[in-house]
Write a protein that binds this DNA or RNA. Structure first.
Lengths: 184, 184
DNA sequence: CTCATCTGAGACATCCATGTCTCAGATGAG
DNA sequence: CTCATCTGAGACATGGATGTCTCAGATGAG
């Protein structure tokens, strides 16, 4: 039963990250179950959306722990974080597209807590002289998440190869688009 | 009358870029008119969304022309483009969040045409040795747009000062988050 | 096999946004 | 002032997604 919940949530992410207004029929079909069974697992649409949001935030938080972003060199910590997050980029794309989620105080608090950890990572990196100080830590955090969501969308639509996605994200975010003529 | 259309569209962008599922009531209120008048200007919700999409694409295209992205140094061309686009970042945020728009063949063709111009800009920059070749031109194009939409959201929610937005976008995208220790 | 449980299909009822209409008040030109 | 036009408020019908229910068939343990 618990396995069913997770597989349904996973399927829901695949649909909702691209089409936040998808009907429950489509979500059920994507999960390989009927609309009736979907209703048996989740009381309603709102509950389903909320569960997906919780899953996304849990995975995000787990990624912060796995990557141990509070430890070691800030740049390496961010690289670890990207490697861990990219496989679940679709979840971040879902979070980015489902703004209604932030009406929920609990989800909002979870998000704020986790975003603070990421901001702290960038602030630490700035203090260590690793990250640029001309760009605020909050903007770096937000931009990192925007690009992560973008990776999720691009992979889902087949515009970006999953194997290239971590490289594309971290290289663009860390190094930018300009060729470093001074170091070549 | 034509002035009314534009002001309504402008208000609609402000609402829809943050909440793509906003009711027509909210849009009408945001525009300072009644739902009845909104219906008099636009036949229905679909028509309104489509008009906003067309406006966004027209502005985007005008920005490409104004910035003359086909001329001169690729980096400078991109900087000009960012400067011109940032004031209308909310429109790009709307485009990014309204995936349903791309069911329309006309809008889809317009987008594809304009995105091709941006991709060509990056390809040119890569050939000139300005942009990195490890990242594909299409990914650079997509990431640029993702960050642009992110700027739009951040400004709308008050997380980013409008005056800083162009700098934040172009500096992060071109130079990345890393401090350039080798050049300092 | 037998029975309990789960599932899918379908038939409803319900809710809500949308679309349409009317009418009274406001606006503005003459 | 007078009339034409526009607007806002509200009532009303409509459509579609959602939520609930039933029932027959499938599954699976004993």
């Amino acid at each position: 039963m618990a396995i069913d919940r997770d597989s349904v949530l996973k399927a829901a992410v695949g649909v909702l990250s691209r089409q936040p207004t998808a009907h429950l029929d489509e979500i059920a079909r994507a999960a390989g179950i009927s609309r009736a069974t979907l209703h048996r697992i989740f009381p309603g649409r709102d509950a389903l959306i909320r569960e997906v949001g919780l899953l996304a935030l849990r995975k995000y938080n787990a990624a912060l722990d796995t990557a141990a972003i509070e430890d070691g060199d800030a740049q390496l910590a961010l690289r670890r974080l990207a490697e861990v997050l990219v496989p679940d980029a679709a979840l971040c794309a879902f979070l980015a597209g489902e703004n209604q989620l932030f009406d929920d105080p609990e989800l909002c608090a979870l998000w704020e807590n986790q975003d603070a950890r990421v901001r702290a990572l960038f602030l630490r990196g700035q203090q260590e002289g690793v990250f640029r100080i001309e760009l605020s830590a909050s903007w770096l955090s937000e931009a990192f998440f925007d690009l992560l969501a973008g990776v999720g969308w691009a992979v889902q639509d087949g515009r970006l190869a999953p194997r290239d996605s971590a490289f594309a994200l971290i290289e663009l975010f860390l190094g930018g688009a300009l060729r470093r003529t001074s170091t070549s």
